[in-house]
């Protein structure tokens, strides 16, 4: 279940992946490359300039068995939060 923006803002991510300035498949490949550095149960935050990344990482988390926690829209970019589940 997605978290509220306030809950997301209070999260302390174990890893922040800055994929701003890249286009598909950049943010997805960076998410895949970095999730292994997050402990199981920990949170990865992915930054992307593209709104479409939100749905893409949602689909990715569902497919590979992680938990999509939600996203926050900032000026010109998106903060997307995923919890590593396995």
């Amino acid at each position: 279940m997605s978290m509220s923006p306030d809950e997301l803002k209070n999260l302390k991510p174990d890893k922040v992946v800055d994929a701003r300035g890249t286009s598909c498949p950049g943010p997805l490949l960076e998410a895949k490359r970095n999730i292994g550095q997050v402990p199981v149960g920990g949170v990865m935050e992915v930054l992307s300039s593209d709104a479409t990344t939100v749905r893409n990482l949602q689909a990715w988390a569902k497919k590979v068995g992680h938990e999509y926690l939600g996203h926050i829209e900032e000026a010109g970019y998106y903060r997307i939060f995923v919890r590593r589940k396995k």
């Binding site: 598909c24 498949p25 997805l28 490949l29 998410a31 895949k32 689909a59 990715w60 497919k63 590979v64």
Partner: peptide, 11 residues
């Protein structure tokens, strides 16, 4: 390459 790499990232 976009299709192949995205698919691989999705396991």
């Amino acid at each position: 390459s976009i299709l192949a790499s995205s698919a691989a990232a999705m396991d």
